[in-house]
């Protein structure tokens, strides 16, 4: 056992000898990921500008951005916040509770989607006008 400089609870002095190379590498990685995201954002913009935007293509790009964002989050947490350097016990106690977000997101968003359907169909009493036909809109008519 070596110094207990920081706190008596720490048994082994942590290893901090690494250089700054890893930090800069992560910075470049995050920058590239961000530039990628921006490129996709602009692609979506251009798809929307077209006459008939391809909805599923847009959705695919949006899914891709979400994955890229999660990758960025991973690098920030694991390198910048040094969670990757902590011992496994600690990593697990931080990461596992975040899994609660999965059901949190699914339940909330699917309920939001259901409110839209209820609104569009008057709680199921009429067909969804948004799905049936792109009805010719009156001038000035709001959705």
């Amino acid at each position: 056992m070596s110094q207990h400089t920081i706190s008596p609870e720490i048994t082994f002095a942590p290893d901090h000898l690494g250089g700054t190379k890893r930090i800069w590498k992560t910075f470049y990685l995050l920058s590239i990921l961000t530039i990628f995201e921006l490129a996709i954002g602009l692609t979506i913009y251009n798809i929307h500008k077209g006459a008939h935007p391809n909805a599923s293509l847009v959705l695919a790009f949006k899914g891709l951005v979400c994955i890229l964002t999660l990758a960025k989050a991973f690098y920030i947490v694991s390198v910048f916040m040094h969670l990757g350097d902590e011992i496994r016990n600690m990593i697990m106690t931080i990461v596992v509770p975040l899994a609660l977000f999965i059901w949190f997101v699914i339940a909330f968003l699917s309920d939001g989607n259901s409110w839209k359907n209820l609104r569009n169909t008057d709680a199921g009493s009429k067909p969804d006008t948004h799905l049936v036909a792109p009805a010719a809109k009156e001038p000035g008519q709001k959705d």
């Binding site: 954002g41 913009y45 968003l109 939001g112 409110w115 839209k116």
Partner: peptide, 18 residues
């Protein structure tokens, strides 16, 4: 953010950020 997403999912139209 999730409640933002929920209300966004409940709308037929959403704003184009670009």
């Amino acid at each position: 953010l999730i409640s933002y997403g929920t209300l966004r999912f409940s709308e037929n139209y959403w704003v184009d950020p670009n």
